[in-house]
Design a protein around this nucleic acid. Structure first.
Lengths: 152, 152
DNA sequence: ATTTTTTTGACTAATACTGACTATTATTAT
DNA sequence: ATAATAATAGTCAGTATTAGTCAAAAAAAT
């Protein structure tokens, strides 16, 4: 007998194998598996991450839900992962520019997407002093790059 | 779509898809959906905001009404400028989400561009506490939107 | 023995629903 | 004309219904 998180994971994936996306009620699943509701969050946070190819959205309040969708990982995942490693925890605008250029040259992003990325991380936009701007820039850039890995 | 507010929203939008603007009687809609009249206000205040592209007018007293109109802007630049104005100096993630959705619905940006924009401004990405995150988010979003106005 | 993963629950946050009270406008009575 | 009444819509705060967070305890793996 595996642990409960694995069982819930398997159950959700089994349902997902039939539909492209599923909508669950956190409390219902928790009841079904006799666990506390927050364990559903644990399962989702550890097993249905974007890195593993899932997109999760939710809404609270009456009629609330958690929606899990399977996304298609693209071919360029390895290149992107390599670039994410290069970003590290801090990166200058110029180095970021190089990485974005690289994505454009490899035809992973369009010119317009590249321009948008640059707009998001330039010095004037971030409007803070240097050591912290580089850290923030790295966070934003990594988030942008991660999102390039999947489709839909 | 399980909760009443979503159902009422969908109904109103369906009627709006046929006419440019609609005029409803609050009590009639409340009767129709078996809810209290103030729920109609709730739906309007949460779903038919100016950020989402709607204009609402009303009149009380005999012959009173609530009029909902889909705002129509002329060209892309105008829409973008209007949205930049709405950003102001500080904006929550949810409000930003509405604005980006708006650009997508108006076919000014692709889905992937929208996803990238969201990735650049989400809470986890910015990784700072709330008052300052909203300010930073506004800076980034304005920079992104401004870039949409120029094509190469 | 130590580290990692899982489980738990108290607390927090977001969204939806309700009803009593208020505000405005139109109509009717004086 | 003015005042009273009827017919609307608005506000706000309280309750209900969800989901999220976080850190401690427990269990499992190393």
């Amino acid at each position: 007998m595996k642990n409960m998180s694995d069982i819930i994971e398997a159950y959700l994936k089994q349902v997902l194998s039939q539909d492209e996306q599923i909508e669950i009620k956190r409390n219902e699943i928790a009841d079904q598996f006799k666990c506390v509701p927050s364990q559903i969050n644990y399962v989702i946070n550890t097993r249905f991450t974007i890195e593993k190819g899932y997109l999760v959205e939710s809404k609270r309040g009456g009629g609330g839900y958690i929606r899990i969708a399977k996304v298609k990982l693209l071919d360029d995942v390895e290149i992107i992962d390599a670039l994410i490693d290069l970003i590290g925890t801090s990166i200058s605008y110029n180095d970021a520019y190089s990485l974005i250029s690289r994505l454009y040259e490899d035809e992973i992003i369009s010119k317009r997407e590249g321009t948008l990325m640059l707009a998001a991380i330039d010095k004037q936009t971030l409007a803070i002093e240097e050591p912290r701007a580089c850290i923030l820039r790295a966070c934003i850039l990594k988030s942008l790059f991660k999102n390039l890995k999947y489709e839909e």
